[in-house]
């Protein structure tokens, strides 16, 4: 088994989603891990990310891991289509978190929910321009703005990164395909704005928190799908 194949199955392997892997694949992965130190350390650090996500915001995964994952992914994206990363001044762990780009499964984000109340004390709601039109909130300096939910800025950053890659490619798509994509993206964004507004009015509502997270997840999935098609 090649490293590439091992890395692509790693997430299912770590999450014990063994139903997506046959017994043979599990055995192949395990055999490979014994022999390959590179994959072994990717596995260790991915496990660490999972644990860190569960304990948000106490730990963050190492920068080295992200660098390594980025190295794995970026050769597949033409240089001209890579997003340029905008560095913001890092004021706190929370601000530093924003520049990290890794993905969580929903239960992991939900697991961090207990910290939501504490984080909301930071209380300067980060809003998009659209949100500001909707809610007429005075714009705070970017670096001080924060999310309504733990992990929100991280998932937002990830979505923005993926979206900028897709926006660069979209012009070459079939017009019908592009229309379908944009229609669905708009629908999700509209619901997200509405749900966020509802949550903003009642920040401790756990059902609303879950709704907002689900919509972010939905938006990210839409982008992942398009990446899977390699258009």
């Amino acid at each position: 088994m090649e490293c590439r194949a091992v890395v692509s199955s790693m997430s299912d392997y770590i999450d014990k989603h063994e139903m997506w892997l046959s017994d043979i694949e599990v055995r192949e992965i395990e055999t490979h891990l014994i022999a390959c130190s590179k994959c072994q350390s990717i596995k260790l650090e991915l496990t660490e990310v999972r644990t860190a996500a569960r304990e948000l915001p106490l730990h963050t995964p190492s920068r080295a891991l992200w660098a390594r994952i980025a190295k794995e992914i970026e050769p597949e994206v033409p240089r001209s289509e890579r997003p340029t990363r905008v560095e913001r001044p890092a004021l706190s762990w929370w601000a530093r978190m924003k520049s990290r780009q890794f993905s969580f499964t929903l239960p992991q984000l939900a697991g961090a929910g207990a910290l939501a109340a504490a984080l909301i004390v930071f209380g300067l709601f980060r809003t998009s321009n659209q949100d500001q039109r909707d809610f007429n909130i005075i714009k705070a300096p970017t670096a001080l703005q924060t999310a309504l939910l733990p992990g929100e800025d991280t998932i937002k950053a990830e979505i923005e990164r993926r979206l900028s890659v897709i926006n660069g490619r979209k012009m070459n798509w079939d017009p019908q395909v592009r229309d379908d994509f944009e229609r669905h993206l708009n629908k999700i964004e509209e619901s997200l704005r509405y749900s966020r507004q509802t949550l903003q009015n009642n920040p401790d509502d756990r059902v609303q928190q879950q709704m907002v997270l689900t919509l972010y997840h939905e938006k990210r999935q839409l982008l992942e799908d398009v990446e899977r098609l390699k258009w």
């Binding site: 139903m19 395909v177 379908d180 994509f181 229609r183 669905h184 799908d225 398009v226 899977r228």
Partner: peptide
């Protein structure tokens, strides 16, 4: 997986994951 179109599965006992983007 399909971007657009229907997915139909009948009589399976194995795990299944099905996803339609639009």
């Amino acid at each position: 997986f399909t971007y657009k179109g229907a997915i139909t599965v009948a009589n399976l006992t194995g795990p299944v994951r099905a996803r339609i983007t639009t």
